[in-house]
Design a protein around this nucleic acid. Structure first.
Length: 427
DNA sequence: GCGATCAGCT
DNA sequence: CACAGCTGATCGC
């Protein structure tokens, strides 16, 4: 098997160039403080944050990719041994601090890798992202869109983060005598906390490492590690459960708020099954029967006397995914979230939006292809002209029979990331 | 003893 | 189930 050329968010295998969209753990598998396998391309902010997650990282391997401009980088053709120039552009992913999408251009065609992203309709940042994207797409046709398909199902519907943040603020304001616990991760959802702080004029407690991150991000004054200064605390999501909440309530009245695009947050508690049931199987019923706070908090659900779930997400909801695809008009789409049996091939919903010369389906079935066979358009274009890689009349895999069928990756531990440019079709 | 990897859990 | 990530067991050095 030939070595890979370009890897995005995947660092467990050899490649010539490595790209990191953002610093969430499920996108850094294989990265360690001792990284020495090759240059690592990322945004300026990710480069700034990276040593905090990976102390002693060899900074000379970092290549900062500025937003919105094409950067050139070199690859060696595995077949001819000659040097090839490829180009990459980073675009704001609006996901977490430092998060970017990558657009690649070269003899392999044009590939877009969203990483994790959000694509809201409104807001200054969203509008800027949209115009930037439209601008670059004037001159490019995306052959393959590697898509954040986390919520690639019409049942995933949630508001903008601004709306969701206000819902959280409303919950807090309606519990003036309660302590508040909000579950967050090591990076992301800062704007939610900033919103709460500004609207309610209150500081937010975070744990010490998180305060360091906040300072690296340039947030000064809003956050504190002194519990005496505020009743609102942001805590690691993994440490957040009904049990801990009940424990806290033996000391002081406390409510928990879980910001999440997922419509469920709790598992059945041992010995208390009837209270929660299976939130997966009963989620639609739950949506209707769970308390809507005074009827005006929209998507906010009360799952427990002291626990609230608010649809605050850093991933695109289904409608946003659709709008993004309609904008990009890629020839083909691949989902980058493939870990679970929940994986839905984006082509199931959006195949009809792909490619301008989409062939009749019967041509697609010419030969049954296995997952490992659908190596990218990019794969065999080295040595050809860039234009060759952008011819749009190639067959497109639009295979509605394979809904939920791409499960060959279920056993993979590395859930995201891809070797997106390879020199041959073996894997 | 250490780091890398993985299972399990939330 | 799993947005992202912790803890602890195991394995190789």
């Amino acid at each position: 098997m030939e070595k890979g050329l370009i890897s995005v968010d995947r660092f467990t295998e050899s490649s010539q160039a490595y790209f990191l969209t953002h610093l969430h753990t499920d996108h850094t598998q294989g990265l360690t403080s001792k990284w020495d396998r090759g240059p690592l391309f990322c945004s300026k902010l990710t480069a700034k944050l990276l040593p905090f997650k990976f102390p002693d990282f060899n900074l000379s391997l970092l290549r900062v990719v500025d937003l919105h401009i094409w950067h050139s980088f070199s690859l060696i053709s595995p077949t001819t041994g000659s040097q090839i120039t490829a180009h990459v552009m980073a675009l704001d992913a609006d996901h977490c601090p430092g998060g970017v999408m990558f657009l690649f251009r070269g003899g392999f065609g044009c590939l877009m890798y969203t990483g994790d992203f959000r694509w809201e309709a409104d807001g200054v940042r969203a509008k800027d992202a949209r115009s930037r994207l439209l601008d670059v797409l004037k001159n490019e046709t995306v052959d393959i869109l590697y898509l954040d398909n986390t919520y690639c199902n019409p049942s995933y519907d949630f508001p903008t983060r601004e709306v969701a943040a206000q819902q959280v603020a409303d919950i807090i304001a309606s519990h003036p005598e309660h302590d508040i616990i909000i579950g967050i991760d090591t990076l992301g959802k800062e704007e939610l906390l900033i919103h709460i702080s500004r609207v309610l004029n209150i500081k937010i407690w975070v744990w010490p490492e998180r305060l360091q991150t906040m300072h690296l991000l340039g947030f000064h004054g809003t956050f504190t590690t002194k519990t005496s200064l505020t009743r609102v605390r942001a805590v690691p999501r993994y440490s957040f459960s009904v049990e801990t909440l009940e424990g806290l309530n033996t000391m002081r009245p406390t409510i928990g708020i879980m910001p999440s695009g997922l419509p469920w947050v709790l598992k059945p508690v041992k010995g208390d099954v009837n209270l929660f049931g299976s939130l997966l199987t009963s989620r639609y019923k739950k949506r209707q029967t769970s308390d809507k706070l005074d009827g005006n908090l929209g998507y906010a659900d009360r799952y427990h006397q002291n626990m609230f779930s608010v649809r605050y997400s850093d991933h695109p909801c289904f409608a946003e995914i659709q709008e993004f695809i309609e904008l990009v008009q890629p020839t083909n789409i691949k989902g980058i979230v493939s870990s679970s049996s929940c994986y839905v091939d984006p082509l199931y919903y959006f195949g009809r939006l792909c490619g301008v010369n989409q062939p009749p389906k019967r041509f697609v079935y010419k030969h049954e292809r296995k997952e490992g066979d659908q190596k990218e358009v990019a794969a065999s274009y080295f040595g050809n002209s860039p234009e060759a890689g952008r011819i749009k009349s190639r067959p497109v895999r639009v295979d509605h029979k394979r809904v939920n069928a791409s499960r060959t990756s279920v056993s993979r531990r590395v859930r995201r990331g891809a070797k997106i440019v390879e020199s041959d079709c073996s894997d």
